[in-house]
Design a protein around this nucleic acid. Structure first.
Length: 250
DNA sequence: TCCCAGGGGCCGA
DNA sequence: TCGGCCCATGGG
């Protein structure tokens, strides 16, 4: 029997502690926030429109990009006074591209950010969570970006799947590689469904679920960086004794 | 120098 | 439906 997902969560949380996702750099240094905008109970804190805008922007900028580089881009935007969708729309695309340059793929992301800002700006009630389908219909918003937006910017209990999640769960034999479809979108939905069916057996309140989904995704990313990398570093891995794929230490 | 990062879209077979 | 390619910076 593979280890249960909830058990994985508890072990990772015990080992790494709360990750404080999604960071909001504009609050860096404020009480409870660290210098990069992380806060252990941030999922509980009501978000302002500026917070939401920063999270949504970060979700687009971090596509296939390390968060460090995204931070540089967010700093550049803030220095320019860009803190709302309407501000983005006031910039030319080339100006926007030059500001977000450190985050890579800047031409592509400038287009995506501008069209996203136009959509966001036209919404009657920005605090109202959009339908997932609607997000997916926008250029440059795929399933992972849409789900992180819903979870971290709109506090919707949605489980975010990423490459790390798939890697970890297959290594732990929680999901078998054979059953995973090849096509990216179907792959995503398959793993997400599989995860939900495993978690549904443990009844929790919607608040607890929000906390679980928020923290779980962040913990998996943390764990993938420190141990469960493409080239795994299995020594001292907190999940080592539960992992059939554990490689011998060099 | 090579590899990787908090993905997504497009195109031809 | 699929495989392959493109987008690009910065850090290890």
């Amino acid at each position: 029997m593979p280890i249960s997902l909830l058990r994985v969560y508890r072990i990772l949380l015990e080992h790494y502690g709360p990750q404080g996702w999604w960071p909001v750099a504009r609050h860096a240094g404020e009480p409870g926030f660290d210098k990069n905008g992380y806060h252990p109970n941030i999922w509980r804190i009501p978000k302002t429109e500026e917070d939401r805008w920063e999270i949504l922007t970060g979700a687009i900028l971090t596509q296939n990009t390390s968060w460090k580089n995204v931070e540089l881009a967010l700093v550049a935007l803030r220095a320019e006074g860009i803190s709302a969708a309407s501000d983005v729309l006031s910039l030319t695309e080339s100006k926007l591209a030059s500001l977000i340059r450190p985050s890579g793929y800047y031409n592509q992301k400038a287009k995506r950010l501008r069209s996203f800002a136009a959509w966001l700006n036209a919404r009657p009630n920005p605090a109202d969570p959009p339908a997932r389908k609607e997000l997916l219909s926008l250029v440059g918003i795929g399933p992972e970006t849409a789900d992180s937006m819903l979870l971290y910017a709109w506090n919707q209990p949605v489980f975010v799947v990423d490459l790390y999640t798939i890697r970890l769960l297959t290594r732990l034999s929680i999901v078998s590689t054979e059953e995973i479809p090849m096509q990216p979108i179907r792959r995503y939905e398959h793993v997400q469904k599989s995860i939900l069916s495993r978690l549904s057996r443990s009844p929790v309140s919607s608040q607890e679920r929000l906390r679980l989904y928020t923290e779980m995704h962040a913990l998996i990313v943390r764990h993938a960086k420190e141990h469960c990398a493409a080239r795994p570093k299995c020594a001292q891995c907190p999940l080592g004794r539960y992992c059939p794929s554990q490689s011998p230490s060099p």
